[in-house]
Nucleic acid binder design. Sequence first.
DNA 1: GGGAGTTTACTCGGATAGTTTTTGTCCGAGTTATCTAGG
DNA 2: CCTAGATAACTCGGACAAAAACTATCCGAGTAAACTCCC
Lengths: 158, 158
Amino acid sequence: MHMGEGVEWGLHCCVTLAWLRDEGPVSIRKLAAWFDLPQEYLKKRLQALTRAGILASTPGVKGGFSLARPPERITLMDVVTALQGPLEPFRCDEIRQRGVGGEGAGNEFARPCGIATAMRRAELAWRRELAAQTIADLMAHAPAGAARTRRNYSRMTG
Amino acid sequence: MHMGEGVEWGLHCCVTLAWLRDEGPVSIRKLAAWFDLPQEYLKKRLQALTRAGILASTPGVKGGFSLARPPERITLMDVVTALQGPLEPFRCDEIRQRGVGGEGAGNEFARPCGIATAMRRAELAWRRELAAQTIADLMAHAPAGAARTRRNYSRMTG
DNA sequence: GGGAGTTTACTCGGATAGTTTTTGTCCGAGTTATCTAGG
DNA sequence: CCTAGATAACTCGGACAAAAACTATCCGAGTAAACTCCC
């Protein structure tokens, strides 16, 4: 079970874009150089965040990506669900109903599978934690980042 | 992000083995027919549970798999970690330190990445829920399963 | 100086390819209960 | 009857193949700022 590095990329990009909010949109070229990531693939991930309404993209020569709402209103859950797709961590295939073991069960399978229920509960606990943290919280956790980010950004040529 | 059907298989097998505890070991052939699953691959997954000390395997003509400890002492967390491998859901690659953005950071990166910390906290909440549920809890949640399982098992030929 | 066209620097979306993980299959070797043959 | 060997039904582990997901790249099309040219 793994969740793809795109999630880490997306979250770092969101925090950075939050710190650079006054500078206007940031191009994908600069963002890729910022974290030393493959530009085209990062672009795809940020496009997903745009489709989810987390980022806004402005076309044109001075265009790029920027936060679509204030950092206090973007939770980690938003970013994760936008990037990992609609796939649930645990999928119940109802194997209890298949094969010899499921025969003659009467109405026993009317109620949901206990295993699926338990896994779902754990997943919800995970989602709750993610929904409780916002990009603004992450910014507050690394106060020195704001100055460093603006300083390094102003030095970027091009 | 997905966690592999092997987890669902393993949990259902554990519950079934718990209900069939007096019958002695259950062969992989019967278990695969029980849930209508690919026999060879299911075997691999149960072997992983055996390596983790959750199941016990007895070789020989009347051999098969059985629970290595009472169902009250097997948590969902045990089964999940045994089956999903050592991979963590979120892996921090420290991209904050790479590229232009990480330059001139001084000792700022001495403390752990806030994003990794937040993701870890969510993961721990998930693990805690999984560790709080045992196979015995799942059995109690489906009381009709015990009788049906023993009935169907006794009818299996071979 | 101002307006029309051109260039430039971006994003968007689809198509495609490479790589890794997951899922599934196959085979040889080891283990134990049962079955068989010989005394 | 009793014991030794053969047989059958299992597991274990590695090697291998197929399928899916993830990562990465490329290209054509659209958009907007800046730049150029011409009057």
